[in-house]
Structure formats: structure tokens, C-alpha cells
């Protein structure tokens, strides 16, 4: 079964993360790199992507007369932003939850776990049998 694990960063967390000393940022990056290597060698990784900062984001809606209406981020009303995601192919939901919990321990200030929320969503598939 495939699951998408969405890493949700608190709105203020981005700025704070950028002010961490280099060794903390390096530790965070190595954690993420090792995670993807481990997921590949476990035969579980389908896709993993990190997203550009919310300050680079655009919010797009269709104008009534056609064409895009574009506004810039960040969006003060949002409490959390999607920072990145993984799609994994695992035997069951329990494994997806265990992976999400591990991702949430990514190191932040002083190497202590950040414990940000990770949303676990099952990816829809084809029908299992005849109706």
C-alpha cells in the first residue's frame, strides 16, 4: 500500500530554522539524506521531494473571465505549511505511521528532535475486486 507522508512545518518555524548554527542545519540535512537512502534500500521509497519556502509560493485561482489571479505568499492565515513529502510503498498503515514518527524526530536546535507534525495519507489505488 502506498502512503504519502506530508511534513508540516509551523509557520514561524521556517525563519527560526534558518537561524540555527551550521552544525545543526548540517545534522538536519544528513538525517534527511540518510532517511532517503534507508527508504530506498528497504525497497520502500516511491518519491520524496522538498518544497521551496512558502515565501516563494503563489496562490492561484481562476478569474471569473478566465486566466489566473495570482497572489504572493506567505499566507498569514495559515498556521502550518507543507515543507516536503515522501511517498512510500509499505505493507500496512502501521509501518507508514512508524516512518512518520521517525521523520518527526528530525534534529533541530542543538540536535534535539523537532517533533513537527507529519500527515499520513493513503494513496488511492485501483479497485480490488468486482463490484
Amino acid at each position: 500500500m502506498k502512503y504519502m507522508l506530508l511534513m508540516m512545518a509551523p509557520a514561524g518555524g521556517w525563519a527560526k530554522f534558518m537561524t540555527l548554527p551550521p552544525e545543526d542545519i548540517r545534522a538536519h540535512i544528513s538525517f534527511m539524506k540518510k532517511l532517503n537512502v534507508d527508504l530506498t534500500s528497504a525497497g520502500e521509497l516511491v518519491d520524496a521531494q522538498g518544497l521551496a519556502f512558502p515565501s516563494q509560493a503563489k496562490l492561484v485561482t481562476a478569474k471569473a473571465g478566465g486566466g489566473p489571479a495570482v497572489s504572493d505568499g506567505p499566507f498569514p492565515e495559515s498556521k502550518e505549511f507543507l515543507a516536503g513529502y515522501w511517498i512510500v510503498d509499505v505493507p500496512d498503515e502501521a509501518r507508514a505511521i512508524a516512518l512518520a514518527a521517525h521523520i518527526s524526530t528530525a534534529p533541530g536546535a542543538g540536535g534535539s528532535p523537532m517533533r513537527f507534525p507529519v500527515e499520513v495519507r493513503q494513496v488511492m489505488a485501483g479497485p480490488p475486486e468486482d463490484l
Binding site: K2, T40, S41, A42, G43, E44, L45, V46, D47, D89
Partner: peptide, 15 residues
């Protein structure tokens, strides 16, 4: 067929 990257499937088979 299982819609996963080739590297992932190669690892699954090797495991």
C-alpha cells in the same frame, strides 16, 4: 508494474 522507482524494486529483490 508496481509503480515504484527501479532502484527501489532492485533493492526489494536484492533483500
Amino acid at each position: 508494474a508496481f509503480m515504484v522507482p527501479e532502484a527501489t524494486m532492485a533493492q526489494r529483490i536484492s533483500r
